[in-house]
Write a protein that binds this DNA or RNA. Structure first.
Lengths: 224, 224
DNA sequence: CACACTTTGAGAACGCAGTCACAAGGTCGG
DNA sequence: CCGACCTTGTGACTGCGTTCTCAAAGTGTG
């Protein structure tokens, strides 16, 4: 039983842990106590060897001849991913997308709570979305400090995205999820990931042109 | 000048081409005729060697001692990505997210046109979003055929996402962008990419727990 | 026209991730 | 308690992607 002397977890593995987590949740609901790497692989859409290697980075949580205890594995993964904690989230930019994100009930409830909506437009400030009131950008720093915001989502137009990122970083936010179609630079101490619709569509377009030489459904993406 | 005997373009490169494209568009607006790999790398948030290697897969479009002709490179990349064509897109599932996607003006105008909105909810069918009317799922096959839909976006709840994917595939759609938090399986002949908010947040959470051992902002994601 | 300077293009080396294959370790029936 | 069976955990191998480095190819100046 590895415990403290745990190896560094590869980025590719980190990116798959949430998928395993979701699959295990489903297994826990419908089914039973233990699950084999093969079955888990099927639910997660990967192959069994990869599942075993990934899980082995967390420690030896399986039992040979039997499989993995679903509840125990769920617990270990959620601890590893920090899902046992509460992560207050702020959304900056409450346009179409920001509003949809604010109303989105798909974060798995677990941990990620949207506690602030901010926008630069005075027309929007004061309006309510869900049960939150939109606040002005100027109050970003104080809001981040008071509500202990860990994660910032940027849903602004591209031209102001870098500016907003800088504000978030200055306010102490160290994890950013960027939805704006722009390349942002942040200090190395800040983690940033991006979700970019236009890029995804263009990649699909590339392979659509070349049917036949198209690779299969993409592998899980990298971590950051 | 390489032409027909062009090498296979690696997935990682394909995923970066849209980023270069966007950076070049910006350069073309503000600036001038040619751009060095170093400058382009800066705008795209990668390093210069990678830019050169990526572009070399498209052919020898640079001039030593000078750099790349911005307009020419834009043209070549857009041709490679299929941005010179028109790609009709259908969105299935017009909830929060679907509506936001329908109204989203960030696809770069270029090529991707949303031409159909579909939902299983009779309450929604017939309503208008933007200038499109929501249609019933039952008409998916005919809509795809008539409007020559190439790309389907799935923005339904997770439990029905696989079902919708199957319908899209049966209707002849060969590129799918999945926003539902679910693992979908499609035939190898179909390209699928996913955008998964919950997973992104959980990855950020992982690294937030481990400040110090955190890798920098993620590399561009893989293609599919 | 020669020489200094710039920048690309690509070969080589390296490192990370994925796959394979199998020994180790555990269950279970008789 | 023994032997057949199952499934994990991991070492070895392979392949892809990134980085390094430098020759080749171009510009421009005196």
């Amino acid at each position: 039983m590895a415990d403290t002397a745990r190896r560094r977890i590869p980025e590719a593995t980190v990116a798959r842990l949430p998928v395993y987590y979701r699959a295990l949740l489903e297994a826990a609901e419908h089914e039973v106590g233990t699950i084999s790497s093969e079955r888990l692989a099927e639910l997660a859409g990967v192959n069994a060897a990869k599942v075993r290697k990934d899980l082995s980075y967390l420690g030896s949580y399986g039992t040979r001849g039997v499989g993995y205890d679903v509840d125990y594995l769920l617990h270990e993964i959620s601890r590893e991913l920090g899902l046992t904690r509460d992560w207050p989230v702020a959304i900056v930019g409450i346009g179409n997308l920001g509003r949809a994100l604010a109303n989105y009930r798909g974060f798995g409830a677990r941990g990620f709570r949207i506690v602030a909506l901010l926008d630069a437009d005075d027309e929007l400030v004061g309006k309510e979305v869900g049960d939150l009131e939109i606040e002005p950008i100027a109050s970003l720093a104080s809001v981040v400090a008071e509500r202990k915001i860990a994660i910032g989502m940027i849903a602004t137009p591209a031209p102001v995205a870098q500016e907003v990122a800088d504000l978030l970083v200055d306010a102490g936010v160290r994890s950013i999820l960027n939805f704006a179609p722009a390349v942002l630079t942040v200090p190395k101490s800040v983690s940033m990931r991006k979700v970019d619709l236009a890029i995804e569509l263009q990649i699909l377009s590339f392979y659509q042109l070349r049917r036949g030489s198209a690779p299969a459904t993409r592998p899980a993406e990298r971590a950051g």
